[in-house]
Design a protein around this nucleic acid. Structure first.
Lengths: 341, 341
DNA sequence: ACTTACATTGCAATCCATTACAACCAAATA
DNA sequence: TATTTGGTTGTAATGGATTGCAATGTAAGT
């Protein structure tokens, strides 16, 4: 473990000062060509590499950003992160990831933890719908030096930028599509509506019904959790009703899959008897034999755009910044599970 | 953007020295109870928070680790990363992620980049099979201060620890299972055998044939790339043969899926006519109606174990460290695609 | 020959926290 | 009373790089 060479080592070897070496390495105009060449050569020879930590301390920029997500092992989040990383790395940033697993305390804790390591910004998808009350979060907000950008699961907070998709439109389009397929009793499996995204999908669903003269039936609206087992459970419930639905729009692909499995096990046909539409366009929806219609959220682009918003914000820290709320347009991908021939 | 308070601010307010404040905050024994209490209170009051960057520069430990993977938006890698993050965060580490997209130059570049930001270690799955030649890589190896741990896709390099699964056993078990199902003409779709993992799966496959008295037929061994389209292509090729196979063992779930789709489109039955086994136990393999037999690699555990190996290595930097090569045991998950009743 | 100006380089402070070593004061001991 | 001792706190260096200002030297201008 030979210790790394510093600009002091180079300076000593050349009978110069660290200041001069620093300037030479940074192509500062005030250094003679000779000296610069000498320094550059010596630096190469001694395997010099800038210690970014020292630079960060001095400059106040760590060139690290923190990304906080509920979990990383989900296609949606890992794809967003991919987008963020690809957008930010060329600009010199590194991405630190944190997971919360929907635990309130972890969310606050990780924000603080990131702030302590002096990240230049935080991009996050909230996992705790009541976040704003918390002091750890407020601290970040007051701390106007470190930009905050929400993506996907945001909170409507003044002065905080966000990148989301138009979940209302997603819900609306999905429902409208089902109506166009001739469905009239369209059930909706929704997730925790304290989150804007889920509430908006729900509202889009209702609006589509309204616009098409279909009265909504609250008994067809069931709250679920985003996994296969819960989707099955909800489907079971729906199928037990006096008048079962002829379509299910789920705000989660996993719940949609569960419903699909339950329905087929009961001998019902998809899409003949019941159409199904999910949300997120998870990879498996197109891999199955009975492919599942779903709403694509363009996670990669969402990540890239969130990164761009962050970049804009860091570059005008001192200016009064106006929060930017970017809304991407989702796309309904129609597949077999809802396409009646 | 009020600037953060430092120990100097606290010291000034109390008429003390930064040194004293530092000691008080760190519960150093040599500080009087009074002073400590005073400092602690004032620190709270002034919203003091330790600047980890300064600490890192002073101590030489950044408490950051770098994780390099080909891409993060794959279930396998994101799950490994999840394991790493969950294991390391409680110990005070943050995880920086880097993707290479299998580009050689990026791999070297990102290693250097991580080294420059003074990560305390690097955990990586190589994406470039010829990595060892490169000087950026050698630098990391010589730089014994920063531990390196390979996971999954490793290179056999003296002194470098690794955590992998027993791919030979994975390939062997998969093939043996197919033989037990009565298959005799078992094709193998393998990926680039310059990688140990793929070569070992290949060797396991051959050994299983050998052990069961089945002569292997090189025409049944086809190189593919891990995606659906390539899997289809390979299947098409195999089905065009004079004597098509009665089973396919693919070293990738995606290629297996492609093969499955191609086979069914041709009206052949799975598993009746052709059995299929994939590798990785991607989520979709169990979601499909025709579930796919696959080999689970326990990515979460792999991540956790890799993190543990790293932790061990950082704690004995000065000691001569003996590389640890941990091999996890994979598990064949038998599903419909290969289970003849 | 003397001043002016410019081109280079050095000095020292700064970013923030830690820590070996020195210094100080008061109480206890000889 | 003089001295040792222990308990506290201060001094200053350290980690590595950057940068405003000062200083030096040299060539050009008058």
């Amino acid at each position: 473990m030979e210790k790394k060479t510093t600009i002091y080592d180079i300076a000593a070897k050349l009978g110069l000062t660290a200041a001069t070496v620093s300037r030479a390495l940074n192509n500062n105009a005030k250094i003679s060509l000779n000296t610069r060449k000498l320094v550059l050569e010596t630096a190469l020879e001694m395997n010099y590499e800038q210690n970014k930590l020292a630079l960060a301390l001095k400059s106040g920029k760590s060139y690290n950003v923190g990304v906080i997500v509920p979990r990383i092992d989900s296609n949606f989040f890992s794809t967003v992160i991919r987008g963020i990383e690809e957008e930010l790395y060329p600009k010199g940033y590194h991405v630190i990831i944190c997971q919360t697993h929907n635990q309130e305390n972890l969310e606050i804790e990780k924000i603080n933890s990131l702030l302590n390591v002096q990240v230049d910004g935080i991009l996050m998808s909230i996992s705790n719908a009541d976040l704003e009350e918390d002091k750890g979060f407020n601290k970040l907000l007051k701390n106007k030096g470190t930009p905050l950008v929400f993506f996907d699961r945001k909170k409507d907070i003044k002065g905080v930028s966000s990148v989301t998709i138009d979940d209302f439109k997603g819900g609306y389009d999905a429902t409208k599509h089902l109506i166009e397929q001739g469905c009239r009793r369209i059930a909706h499996l929704y997730n925790d509506r304290k989150f804007e995204i889920f509430n908006n999908r729900f509202l889009g669903y209702r609006q589509a019904l309204l616009d098409n003269g279909i009265e909504f039936d609250e008994s067809l609206e069931i709250e679920t959790i985003s996994n296969v087992a819960e989707g099955r459970k909800s489907a079971r419930e729906l199928l037990g009703r006096d008048r079962p639905p002829d379509a299910i729009f789920s705000s989660s692909d996993f719940a949609a899959l569960g419903a699909l499995q339950e329905i087929r096990e009961r001998g019902l046909g998809i899409p003949e008897d019941i159409c199904i539409v999910g949300f997120s366009n998870e990879p498996f929806t197109k891999f199955m034999e009975l492919t599942i219609t779903s709403v694509d959220q363009f996670p990669m682009e969402m990540g890239k755009v969130a990164a761009q918003v962050f970049l804009e914000e860091v570059s005008n820290i001192q200016d009064i910044k106006i929060a930017k709320n970017i809304v991407l347009t989702p796309e309904l991908i129609v597949r077999k599970s809802s396409l009646k021939t």
